[in-house]
């Protein structure tokens, strides 16, 4: 398992470095000077490739650190990511209250809350959070669906 992990990690670092160099080749040059906007990204890309090779070397020598041995459930983590992405998309459309309530409905369940907890958090939290951020801190949170009753 640590072997697979380190081959993936090392390869990812090398690929990332190569991708940075490929993109940097398209940056504009200033005259004959050798230090344009691409110089620093090239140095960093070199570092990424070197460190990737280092991780691969560790894997080959079998001296990589052990993983934290515990079973990991992927589904809850994936749902969490989906909620974050969904919130980013829906916040301007549905408005703060509705989007927050929906997100909380899902996330409280993911963390094992009962439906009662779920409902009470989803109703109370948006109101409290809105008060703190919109009324006290004056962050222009979108109203979306609730625009007609906005204050």
């Amino acid at each position: 398992m640590t072997l697979v992990r380190d081959i993936v990690t090392g390869t990812a670092l090398v690929v990332l470095g190569i991708a940075m160099i490929v993109v940097a080749a398209g940056f504009p040059q200033i005259g004959a000077v050798t230090f344009g906007p691409d110089l620093f990204p090239r140095i960093i890309a070199g570092g990424l490739i070197l460190s990737g090779l280092g991780v691969l070397l560790e894997a080959w020598r079998g001296i990589a650190p052990e993983s934290e041995a515990s079973s990991f459930a992927w589904l809850p983590a994936l749902i969490l990511c989906a909620v974050v992405a969904g919130f980013a998309v829906l916040l301007p459309v549905l408005g703060f209250h509705v989007a927050t309530a929906l997100a909380l409905l899902v996330v409280v369940r993911v963390f094992g809350g009962s439906w009662l907890t779920c409902a009470s958090v989803a109703i109370l939290a948006p109101i409290v959070l809105h008060y703190i951020f919109y009324s006290v801190l004056r962050v222009p949170l979108p109203w979306g669906l609730l625009s007609p009753v906005a204050w």
Partner: peptide, 18 residues
């Protein structure tokens, strides 16, 4: 945890947005 973690998540997203 079921109350705390969701609130932390919301604070993360709203804080970043703010």
């Amino acid at each position: 945890r079921a109350v705390l973690m969701p609130l932390v998540l919301m604070l993360s997203m709203i804080g970043a947005y703010a």
